[in-house]
Write a protein that binds this DNA or RNA. Sequence first.
DNA 1: TCTCACAACTCCTATACATGAGTGAATGTG
DNA 2: CACATTCACTCATGTATAGGAGTTGTGAGA
Lengths: 259, 259
Amino acid sequence: MASTVGARSAKPRYLQIADDIEEQIRAGRLAPAEEIPSETALMERYGVSSGTVRKAVAQLRTTGLVETYQGKGSFVKSRPPVTRKSSDRFRRSHRRAGKAAYIAETEQAGVKPTVQVLSIGPVSAPAEIAERLGVDEGDKVLARRRLYFSDGTPTEEATSYLPWDVARDIPELFEENPGGGGIYARLEEHGHEFAEYTETVRARLATKQEASALSLSPGSPIIHLTRNAVTTVGRVVEVCDTIMAADQFVLDYRIPATD
Amino acid sequence: MASTVGARSAKPRYLQIADDIEEQIRAGRLAPAEEIPSETALMERYGVSSGTVRKAVAQLRTTGLVETYQGKGSFVKSRPPVTRKSSDRFRRSHRRAGKAAYIAETEQAGVKPTVQVLSIGPVSAPAEIAERLGVDEGDKVLARRRLYFSDGTPTEEATSYLPWDVARDIPELFEENPGGGGIYARLEEHGHEFAEYTETVRARLATKQEASALSLSPGSPIIHLTRNAVTTVGRVVEVCDTIMAADQFVLDYRIPATD
DNA sequence: TCTCACAACTCCTATACATGAGTGAATGTG
DNA sequence: CACATTCACTCATGTATAGGAGTTGTGAGA
């Protein structure tokens, strides 16, 4: 026989096959972005029926090792470079250099960042956002939705929410490009001096909408980051809600030791 | 017909069925820990074959909505309460109150925390750990592996690594219970005063080992947290590597606005 | 009463087959 | 040459069927 899977074992056949292919991927015999043998080829190769092969490939999909496209085939997933989001990306010095936070963080990862503004305009505040902003649920707030790309592939979808009475007075916030240093620079110019940011990190599987927005395969994990920007008077003037493809980001935080 | 799934639509039948059951779960008509109808029952109910029903249930499994046990049935997963890990859990005041970090953080979630020590002893440092500790890969370091439970279910596996020359002098670090305030209290008692902690957050799918250690279903997302504890002389005297079930934790961080 | 074997139920693996739908290249036609 | 058609390939959905394996209750026998 051309190939013997893991000899005899208690494991079901489809897992043996999945393990065998996984091993080939990890050993580099199947390179990233390379096509793995078609279902019919695998059926012959392992001498099993189509159903079994399909279950094996499905297993690899849920492990996140391959992606399959109908009509084309299954391909070894290539791991995109990770970009680090360090907690000092909000330094004013970055803003004074004219850089918005996302530029400061991605340019050091060696990838070309791009932004696409999806929408800017008033929306009624969702519950969690309203609570964070200290307004009532359903109140009018400004939402800025945008999609970030690294080297052309979408990696991150972010929505900033601002209380209407804050946003109203700052015309740049309604522009696609809010100007050098991003919206945080504009907010500080208008007297909202930031004291701190608080970030909430969650991880979960992408919903259908999120998966399609970030062109992920279903079942991909995402990082859900929600940030409050708090001014020196203790007011939250912006909440930023971000969905990130989990395999493309690493978050770094510094926690000073205090009493 | 007893039940009409979403009428006609482009969606495949098995997804319609999965959506229908999901809707029943979300609406509370199928309560947590309750058994969902058996495969044969669902076959009759929706008038489809076993394969289709099985795919529908598989879909619900990957979504994390149900768990199925061979020979018993499928059950709606009861979501354990999330525990927040806020960045002030390392305050010395908590330690002085005799509380280790994990106690301080879980007891406010209303769940009963338990710890099981898996192993304590010298190991040779893995690459990433060695780099963080500033020692050579393979050097002898002390590893403390432990498994945390919330209300009896495992949620978190953590391994602390300490340079051997630091650990050697502190006998309590080799005990299962290092005493009030945890190992950080012992380290500070021995002259290692902490200046800051740096945490690195990643999210990904659980490996087979991680899934079984935390008794997660395969394909579950996890949060991978790695923390350096840095002393006032700039030395990293501990690295803590933690795997958490993603659906049970929320991480909170405060980032002071600086220049 | 207790124990053990069995039946009846659950889900799991695997086969074989039919049909549908997306992709891409070769081919033919204007 | 440009364009549409065809065809061979891919995976996706769904049926029907068979046997295996884990779980649980029940009933016969000691």
